[in-house]
Amino acid sequence: MIDADGVLLWVERRGQGPDVLLVSGLGDPAEVWRSQLDGLADRYRITAFDNRGVGRTPLPEGPLSVPGMADDAAALLRALDVPAAHVTGFSGGSFIAQEMALRHPGLVRSLVLMSTMARPDPYFRAVARFWRWMAERAPGERAMLEAFYLWVYTPRAHADGMVDRLVEETLAFAHPQSVEAFQRQLAAFAGHDTLDRLDRIGVPTLVLSGEVDLVAPPRLGRVVADSIPGAAFEVLPGEAHQPFQEVPDVFNSRVDAFWRAVDAGGPGSG
């Protein structure tokens, strides 16, 4: 546990090299980044953490907000004496990463925004309303996970047993997220809006979208990339919401190339 300006955050760190901060999405503890913690620690010092109300980080009183969670991430870097990091955020974590770059620009060396958007559209808001009551009314945790994972993984992952494995791992996890914490985090992400401020981001940025992502389709990622000066935008063919889990070698190779270009200050750095 790390005291980040009065907030106790569970943190996992691995490796040596340039600093990378990984910011998780809705309901995801640090373990969601296992393939990056394992696969990139030979070249980078990787930091992953549990957001408020997720995993081992307690849920505070009062509403959650994306700016507040961005302040937590910034306080964490300061507590770890990290002057600046390559910040990678996934889904709701990409909302946090956007706010972090806007509120604490000196701490952000570059941005990778996976499965992102600048402002939830009516479809996403409808999905969020569905997820809210699904968490309350699903007949059990397994049923909730099986329904939720329909939205975020490819049919391939359902067919090859990956989703079944993830369901079992989540059910066995010693620190499950409460329904209240899930709903409060979901409400914060549904209220995200940086659309009119993204042009203030001045760090190299890579926006990645899964071609068949139902939750954050490429058209929403394209808006983010078009709004950030110099941002690169790429669509991962055949992938859904969580390519960093489904095709980690592809994801790791792409972000590694981007970070190397940023550190070298050459082409491809945004």
Rank of each mutant, 00 (worst) to 15 (best):
T47H: 07
A48C: 06
F49P: 03
D50V: 01
G53P: 05
V54P: 09
R56C: 14
T57E: 05
P60S: 05
E61M: 04
E61S: 00
G62R: 04
G62C: 01
S65V: 03
M69R: 03
D71C: 00
D71M: 01
D72S: 04
D72C: 04
A79P: 02
A79E: 03
D81V: 02
D81A: 00
V82I: 02
P83G: 00
V87Q: 02
T88S: 13
F90M: 14
F90S: 09
I96E: 03
E99D: 10
A101V: 00
A101T: 05
R103M: 09
R103D: 09
H104P: 00
L107M: 00
L111F: 06
V112W: 05
M114N: 09
M114A: 10
M117H: 12
R119Q: 04
D121K: 00
D121C: 09
P122C: 08
R125P: 06
A126C: 07
R129S: 08
F130Y: 12
M134N: 13
A138G: 04
P139W: 10
P139E: 09
G140D: 07
R142C: 02
M144R: 15
E146K: 12
A147S: 11
A147K: 10
L150S: 15
W151Y: 15
Y153D: 08
T154W: 10
T154F: 11
P155A: 14
R156N: 14
A157W: 12
H158M: 13
D160G: 12
G161C: 07
V163A: 12
L166V: 06
L166P: 07
L166M: 13
E168A: 14
E168D: 14
E168T: 12
T170E: 15
H175P: 06
P176D: 05
S178K: 05
E180K: 08
A181G: 10
